[in-house]
Write a protein that binds this DNA or RNA. Structure first.
Lengths: 140, 140
DNA sequence: ATATACCCGACTAAAATAGTCAAGTATTAC
DNA sequence: GTAATACTTGACTATTTTAGTCGGGTATAT
């Protein structure tokens, strides 16, 4: 069970942005340098964050990205959804009558995985960007 | 964030076994048929479960595998560890002084991922095999 | 004008996953 | 004692996913 870089970088980048005055555009180039994330990869990620209305863009010189809301109001769960990385631990569909492995019944552990998904989603649902900054002054 | 088939099948197979009288060898062939899991793949998985003392094997005709302990005493976390699938959501090492991305400091979100790992491991730590069987008579 | 910085789809190398295969060995039933 | 069953083990492989890169844009500030 592993988190992929896309979600991880998305959170890292947005946390990075959160440290700057809101409405102050932060360029991907700067984020890229500070967080050691490939610029080209960041661009890909931010397109999704933009489409999902988590950030907005400011083009041109001195442009960059700006958070659309206060970090307090941006839940990590939204970020994950935005970059397409649903926290869905297994393949079997939640309510499908078809069952999980081609059989007509739910697999023996179906409820367990449902429960796990809810549990994990709950973690991200209850964390927002500003939570990441508390007492973390020594990091960057 | 996705669970791989190895861990999932391991749990499914052991849950399947749990329904039979303990000390009654259950063959992988039967599990394979009931759970629709490739026999050859199951063999691979059970070698690990055996090495980790979760099951023991009985060779020969009417042989199979037997749980070494009561299902109540087999935590899901053990099963995951046995099949090598540590729940470790990101790459950065817990206590390494080296930092996470080649830098000399922990990444901005380091604490978050640590917290997530603990949170998820906690889920598996508090579930055992017998938990999966309660009120699930209709499934198989 | 020109430099900065976002925009976007297509592409690709590398790694991980999800198995399969071959060639066994041990045990039991008959 | 031999056939059948079922575990044992390491190596191999196809497929999928991931983690990016590339190329060629467009908008804006100075």
């Amino acid at each position: 069970m592993k988190l992929n870089t896309k979600s991880r970088y998305a959170v890292m980048a947005l946390a990075d942005m959160s440290k700057f005055p809101i409405n102050n555009p932060v360029s991907l180039r700067d984020i890229s340098l500070r967080q050691s994330i490939s610029l080209l990869y960041l661009e890909q990620i931010f397109l999704k964050l933009k489409k999902n209305e988590i950030v907005k863009s400011v083009r041109g010189t001195n442009g960059g990205y700006v958070l659309r809301r206060d970090p307090k109001n941006i839940k990590l769960s939204e970020i994950f959804q935005a970059v397409d990385q649903k926290v869905k631990t297994v393949g079997c569909k939640k309510d499908s009558k078809k069952g999980c492995n081609g059989k007509s019944v739910k697999c023996i552990t179906h409820e367990l995985w449902d429960e796990l998904d809810i549990y994990i989603n709950n973690f991200f649902e209850n964390k927002n960007l500003s939570d990441l900054l508390v007492n973390k002054e020594r990091n960057y």
